[in-house]
Design a binder for these strands. Sequence first.
DNA 1: ATCACATGGCC
DNA 2: GTTTTGT
DNA 3: ACAAAACGGCCATGTGAT
Length: 826
Amino acid sequence: MPLYSRTEAETVVTTVSAQLEKSIASPPQSSATAKRPHTLIITDSDSDNDQLVRNLKPDHSSAFTFSESLSDNTNVPPSKKQKDSHFESGVDDDFQTPMKAPILQPNLLECTSDTKIIPGLNLAGRKVHPMFANKTTGQKPSSDTVATSVVENSVDNLKTEKKAADSMKAGGAPDNNINDEESGNSIDSALKLIDSSDSVASWKKNDPVPYSALCKTFDEIEATTKRGISDKIFPHGFASLAKIVVTICPEYEGKELGIGDSILMKAVANATGRSISNIKSDCDKVGDLGTVAEVSKKKQMTFGVGKILTVDKVFATLKEISGISGSSSQAKKIERINSLLVNCKGSETKFLIRSLEGKLRIGLAEKTVLVAISHASIISNIECKAWSKEKLERELESGTAILKQVLEKKKLTFHPYSELPNYDIIIPALAEHGIKKLHEICKLTPGIPLKPMLAHPTKSLTEVLDRFENINFICEFKYDGERAQIHQLEDGTINIYSRNSENLSVKYPDIMQMLPDVIAPGVTSFVLDCEAVAWDIKKKCILPFQVLSTRKRKDVAVEDIQVAVCVYVFDILYLNGKSLITETLRSRKESLKKSFFEQEGKFTFAKALEASSVDEIQTFLDESVAGNCEGLMVKTMDDGSTYEPSIRSKNWLKVKKDYLTGIGDTLDLVVIGGYFGKGKRTGWYGGFLLACYDDDSETYQSICKVATGLTEENLKQFYELFEPYKIDVPPSYYQFSDVPNIRPDVWFKPVQVWEVKAADLSISPVHHAGKGLCDPSKGISLRFPRFIRVREDKGPEQATNAEQVATMYRAQNLNSASGNVLEDDF
DNA sequence: ATCACATGGCC
DNA sequence: GTTTTGT
DNA sequence: ACAAAACGGCCATGTGAT
């Protein structure tokens, strides 16, 4: 799809149409043979296209080149004042104040394409690998325009860049036709391309970055399925990358926006003069509110020329929205959104809405941006830029070459970021010290939550043994609670963080209070990795997750805590001023046992066993399940057992009984309704409502929705399959809660039975399965339901019946009550 | 006051 | 949380 | 192997409506 090869106005129209085509005619890269359920007729009104042309027309009179930007940067030292704003306020303060990540301070956001703000780090976007850019001093250095978002994007150029990256990866010398200026080289052709197309978003050097530039890059990224960094956001340069990060995470200083689909729809309706119900139904068809907004806006007649939105303006408004609360806050928020929407043009509308939704849906998210930051940083690093071709080649050859390391292992940025996930620190540190020293500056710091290590699901015990063949490993109970990362700073401050780096200190005052009692003398600072689990004080046993989740989250006073917790600690990452994450797990466990005492029902070491045989593990697994746990965690003890938060994000294994094929709760359920899919699933049902059969009342009782476990093939197939069985109104023998979240978009006759697997059964506030059998008024639902297969052999009335569901629920709970095996002999 | 709904955050 | 998909 | 994007149940909390 040759985007941006025409005039700007055409391009925008093409882009929109292309997206609609994509979403209607052939969504998720499918073979598009399935008949699409919906059609949408778009009548393009081009009323505001001329504005777009005016706003986005590039400034050809002052073509910008690489060499210029780089030489500009090379010798500009940071002024004292700028340094202050970045480091003294932005870094030092932050180090002292415990914080949640990621946070971006305004001072960072104010880094525009102006190279003086982050000296040495601005990259102009060009298709040629900037590493070789300093060879091109033949280009004219006379412009005041900095094009940071270059959206020209021929297949050739993508290839060229990929090639450059590849040759670097291989450690070989750069391909000649990539960087040389004499042959029909790509800088020339890139510039020619730019010159000959109207597709460069450019702006004056000291002007703020237009939002359109960012959005056009998003368009580019969305148009490709590739994840390659170079191909995607390389052209953006360092400063702009920081902004992408912001725009991707619509959250400011840990404050949420408080904006969801519902308010957004109101805002869109409001801004486009359409009714909410129309917006809603379009959304069902198109599967993306952003696209609906964009199309709606195009259809709308507009008068006058809107303001040009800047990235800074958009972010400032997001920040403003996050601060609005209280009475009539929703109206105020809508008003703020509208103030942006009226000025949005083309895909800006779409991406603004998606940003507010919290999903960009461009196939690129934070991790990839992080890699891009590494790249952008390394190639714009001063020392790198000054390298001669020979030096560059030597660096690439050498085993210790920074470039090579980054490109191959991406470790240099990933690790520091995982240890200290805070862009306000990482980015200025990169700017100041370069990537090589980043790990020295950005280290695990108590008071700043690090990314927790996660576990990979395992399908069988033999798989565990296969993966850890000839390696010492340890099995631990997998407790069903909430991840808790407990920090103590040198000054005695204690903080507790969740798996997603939220501050839980307020939620667990009881833990804060108890903690000093379990710390061994001489321990001054630490970071613990734990699971907080609901604890029955009388029976001295673990309670289910559902109980834990009823705890208050705010204004918690120790006196009125209803649900006690026991902390199960399984790792220590920092002790007495020293990071332990590079130590082996064995050594960390030793430190842990030396530095903390157990206290029954309050603070306990996770039950662990250094097993070796399948039998031993199997027994231990059974014991864990009997003890109200989810299963086992399996971790290497010596080899490669360092705590590696992001690079190997899933270095541990988890074994749950429901993963094991043939084990776990499996139900045969009737499909009674469907929900329109969004995004990747546009045009099909993205989820289904399932029911069990109640013999007594001869009714189908809703039990859960299911959406995972379905392949694209399934989705396509089921869309067609249910077509003839659609009904307008649910029959009287369907029992369900008629609440917005449950009522399906389409009802079906009971014709098909699906096998569904679940981790647990739960008492449900909304579902009706076995209503009255296990709870006087509530029904039963499933935890983590997933589709396994169609039961062609079963008719709807042979589905799992209500009584069976109730029996399964009772069995599950009986099991845990009897199996009170939690005497800790760790 | 009380309820319904939306949202975010756990799993 | 689970799962599928593309790279 | 990894990253991304679909989607699940259930809870507390905040806001708007009754």
